[in-house]
Design a binder for these strands. Structure first.
Lengths: 144, 144
DNA sequence: CAGGATCCAGTAGGATACTG
DNA sequence: CAGTATCCTACTGGATCCTG
């Protein structure tokens, strides 16, 4: 969940490890995956790169709302993780192209499962939230 | 990515919508999914609840490193989204059980795709990071 | 036991001016 | 064009103390 430095999570099953069942280790692995695509923009960028090479400014436009800083930061981190490749053309004006790697393409495939899940349950979740919020509201006004 | 209030992302394809291709909307859907399981602890908790009902203090123990505050907050949000159910037993001392819903179980299945991806590429990613960091380091010392 | 309330630190992320 | 540098805010998450 960090954009900064920091290496993979090591402190999760360092504590226990004796009778700790599977969950902790499993969670760790999933988190490793999630940490690369977390952040507000990584997925939006990755998706845009799935169609072929894209230039910096194109990304800036096609990922609505992103700031220059976050675009740069996110691109750098994705590159560091080997999910995208950066190609600089020594022209004037400069031209830089980004494209997703094979790894990113595979990730994209996995993401479809999540997308499907989100679509299946989007309404149910919205309803759950509404009723939860209403209950909280009711409880609050009642107590005061 | 927020634990607090805030409703689903609406500002992502509000800007464009004219010639904006698929990516923005797709990203939005995926983000909706990710936003429910983001945060440092949600997945760890969900995984622990996949085996059956668990009590608060049990979770506190089986999710190593979590603080009381975050356990409570994360549980509340998962409950709000309908991913877990909370049952209070009016006993002394009080007893509260949490268990994952069917929705959560389905999510768990989708997560396996991500886990598999992470495991497949974990080494490649580590290598990519190492070489990236070395390059940056080399460039840095060279320029100064 | 199961939290709620409060205080505090670190980080993600936004805005924008500057540069090779 | 493709960034970098700087400043600033908001939110995540930790620690701790208090309560029904």
């Amino acid at each position: 969940m960090f954009l900064g430095n920091n290496d993979v999570i090591e402190d999760i099953d360092e504590t226990g490890g004796l009778d700790d069942p599977a969950p902790a280790r499993e969670a760790c692995t999933v988190l490793e995956a999630l940490n690369r695509i977390s952040g507000k923009w990584a997925i939006g960028i990755l998706l845009n790169l799935s169609h072929g090479p894209v230039r910096f400014t194109e990304l800036e436009r096609s990922v609505p709302g992103i700031s220059r800083r976050m675009l740069t930061l996110t691109l750098r981190n994705l590159e560091r993780d080997g999910l995208i490749e950066r190609t600089v053309y020594a022209t004037v004006p400069p031209k830089v192209e980004y494209r997703g790697t094979e790894m990113a393409a595979e990730l994209y495939a996995s993401l479809k499962g999540l997308t499907a899940w989100a679509e299946r349950h989007r309404d149910a979740i919205a309803l759950s939230r509404d009723s939860y919020d209403r209950e909280q509201l009711a409880a609050g006004t009642g107590e005061l």
